[in-house]
């Protein structure tokens, strides 16, 4: 049988153990395009649609755990309270039809430099859970999971089963630039977390490097400048934060934009997003 339709995780892992070359299918929004465009010729498919456990999320005081096949639409509608920045990012993905299908595990597995949820996940210090029949479960920080553009540390017999996000208090904002008002691949994207629990600002930047990037120097400097009681920040420090984020970007020029614009834009987005998180 060239297609396996397991109804539980164990079943899926078993197939992957036997046929490590199998293509894993979740929402289909990337995999099917690769087939249509002749970038992938499937010989064996493991479809995850029937595994209910992968579509669940759990909220504990410390951690938000998102099953791998939670869709963007679920995030947008069901997780707006627990993960506001992720919900904002999810709403910018494709069209309603795509958001009904595409999954967070798929966004991780594809590991596009433009992956819309990745900046937020990186800023939140998320960990990816990988599971195999042979070796059980391991957790990788996102930065270790993504090894390059469209490359990950997932072994052939592993499944992305969930992503775990440490919970922090404080405002968040995600902003994404595309040359159209809907349905665009990100040209530049940021997720800014004003983490009042740890009194640090964190930023994840997308489409300005081989994978999502942090700007640690910028984060450290602006975290110092913020009045954490009032949640205010001098305008000069916000401007400096934007410039430092732009400095930390490693953008390229391609058919979607130029390196120069991406660097500029990510700085503007960083400053604006921070401003929106703070009290005027």
């Amino acid at each position: 049988m060239p297609i396996s339709r397991p109804t539980d995780l164990a079943g899926a892992l078993e197939v992957l153990a036997e046929v490590p070359t199998a293509d894993v299918l979740a929402g289909g929004t990337d995999a099917m395009v690769e087939i249509s465009f002749d970038h992938r010729r499937p010989e064996h498919v493991v479809a995850l649609r029937r595994i209910d456990a992968l579509r669940e999320h759990r909220v504990s005081p410390a951690v938000l755990e998102l099953g791998a096949t939670i869709t963007y639409m679920q995030i947008e509608t069901e997780l707006a309270e627990h993960a506001p920045g992720l919900a904002m990012a999810s709403r910018t993905v494709g069209s309603p039809q795509i958001r009904n299908a595409g999954t967070i595990g798929g966004n991780l597995g594809t590991a596009s430099p433009a992956g819309d949820t990745l900046p937020w996940l990186l800023a939140m210090d998320a960990e990816v859970e990988l599971t195999s029949a042979a070796r059980g479960t391991r957790h990788l920080p996102l930065a270790a999971f993504i090894t390059g553009p469209k490359r990950t540390a997932r072994e052939a017999d592993e499944l992305i089963t969930s992503v775990r996000v440490p919970r922090v208090e404080g405002p968040q904002h995600t902003a994404k630039i595309g040359p159209r008002n809907a349905m665009v691949i990100s040209v530049a994207c940021v997720a800014v977390i004003v983490d009042t629990t740890n009194r640090v600002v964190r930023i994840g930047m997308g489409s300005v490097g081989p994978g999502p990037l942090r700007a640690t120097d910028a984060e450290a400097a602006v975290s110092e400048a913020i009045d954490w009681e009032a949640l205010r920040c001098p305008e000069a420090a916000i401007g400096a934060f934007g410039r430092a984020c732009a400095e930390a970007a490693r953008p390229i020029t391609d058919h979607r934009s130029t390196a120069e614009y991406r660097r500029h834009a990510v700085g503007v987005l960083a400053a604006r997003s921070l401003r929106r998180c703070l009290n005027a």
């Binding site: 910018t92 902003a175 994404k176």
Partner: peptide
Amino acid sequence: LPGGAGLTAERRD
């Protein structure tokens, strides 16, 4: 606003 769902702008921008 320009940018739409990308939430890039506020009216003052």
